[in-house]
Design a protein around this nucleic acid. Sequence first.
RNA 1: CGGGGCGUAGCGCAGUUUGGUAGCGCGCACGGUUCGGGACCGUGAAGUCGGAGGUUCAAAUCCUCUCGCCCCGACCA
Length: 570
Amino acid sequence: MKFTQLFIPTTRETPSDVTAVCQALSLRAGYVRQLAAGLYIFLPLGWRVLNKINRILKEEMEKIGAQEISMPILHPAEIWQQTGRWFSIKEEMFRLKDRNGRDMCLGMTHEEIMTWVAAKELRSYRDLPQIWYQIQTKLRDEARPRGGILRTREFIMKDSYSFDVDQAGLDRNYQKHAEAYHRIFQRCGLLFYQVESDAGMMGGAMSHEFMAPTPAGEDEIVICKSCGYMANTEVAYSQFASSGGHEMPFEEVHTPGKRTVREVSEFLNLTPASFLKSILVIAESGPVLALLRGDYELHEKKLAKIIGSFRPASRDEILQHLQVEPGFIGPVGHSAFRIVADPSVQTGTFVSGANKEDYHVTGIKADKHFAAEWHDIRGVKPGDTCSSCNSSLLIEKAIEIGNIFKLGTKYSEPLRAVYLDKEGQEQLMIMGSYGIGPARIAAAVIEQSYDADGIIWPKSIAPFDIEIIPLNVMDARTMEVAEHLHQNLSAIYNSLSKRSFEVLMDDRNERPGVKFKDADLIGIPLHVIIGERGLKDNLIELKTRRTKQAVKVPLDLAVSEIFKVYYESE
RNA sequence: CGGGGCGUAGCGCAGUUUGGUAGCGCGCACGGUUCGGGACCGUGAAGUCGGAGGUUCAAAUCCUCUCGCCCCGACCA
């Protein structure tokens, strides 16, 4: 392919409103353009990369017996009403009416439709198991699109769905997907972790996320390098660091106008870890007092698992239930309340509000001065250790590039996806669903693989394998060599990669500097530089993008040397 | 949805405080000189100053409304 025949609008400057590296580079290198908030156009180079990724996805999905199909993205509301998600999902779903006034929506994901087909067409245990997948557009009216192609309102997803006769079948398909995902991300050249995750709106019993660590990531994951525990902070547990709190008399102290942990700790010259933080929340069953150590934050999802959905209490509610201003709440003397306390305050001596304006109480001990249900309700923080092996934990930012869910019967039940077993009994199908975002893979790869000059693609998903750079297109010899190499490399079938090289030739009448800069920016793995200077000695130059190392090779050995350097390079 | 920021030539920006001829750099077109890491000289095209309304002799600039984009948070298969 010739550069002059491809639309590659590179730019020297970065648009001012980008923040993420992947966003800046994919724009500058001419891979994508933004249409509106959360809507991106994939230009020729970007689309080539996505197709490379999709090719890998298809190969690995076929390997585990998944069958590619294609579903509509416009859905009738009824099916989503049957599973309840029409109601439980709020503004995030794009909804519309057709000309007859029928409610429709744009698919955020395809559990409903896949299950609908399964319910209609699969009847016998003999029809199962099935794995169906597609690479299809999803639409979500995101509250806040961000990070360029990281979080968009319209995006392509590889989503697959498994249908099994029993839990053991689901376990096998879940495991197969996990293994396929490992191969996929490895082939794409990503550093990634498989972490425990929250099932979120998908529901279901078990789920894992695949996370590519990068500072641009929206999620935070907790990693134990020692025993391998890895989890999204949404579900992560840890061992709290001991507070080293010291003994204090049990007495009220005057703390005029000091309300926050920070204010009171400074006022009393104590560390935040000496405090017992009391938070009043309103659950459906009534008010609940949540207690945790002053240096920790309440983990709302963990608390919700124990007391159900809740919201923070308003100032009036705090006055009503506790008869005290916010800032002076404490656990002492509230035996009538449901109190849920974090183990970080189970041993030791603490300071907390006195339930009396402008007073706190020192010397509080659990069980002696208050009683509580004990549950881990705190967020993991730096310095915590692993709850299984007590080694130190790492907290890293990461991009979610894939996930796998054990759905069980969450969708087969409402949509009546049933089969007859060997005894002729009707049984619910056991389902799993599994997603990967190809654009997020591309973004994560850029985030993990770039330098000051631009993108460094791994060979597996680069838009081209080789870029030929004839430095002076006005020189006849240069062009003769370049054209010849271009044709040869594009034509020779290579048994290793099972295809011929995809070659981009920069045939623009540009100065060498411009071509070098653009080549580095675009990030094709191997550059073949043809200049008059080298040709005098029948030499051309091979330069690998990642290392920037260049070797001069004789012209008559060009093709074999290119093979060699290409396959030796990382 | 809450908080903040920004909309001026294709891109990056100045000009807005204090109303008075719409500018700079890059890019683009043409001519010339250059040609191994984003060249130089010259000439030129290109703007409803996001939009609507208002104040004023006069609005990019002041006021009101509105639309869009970005960031932080809330939210998030």
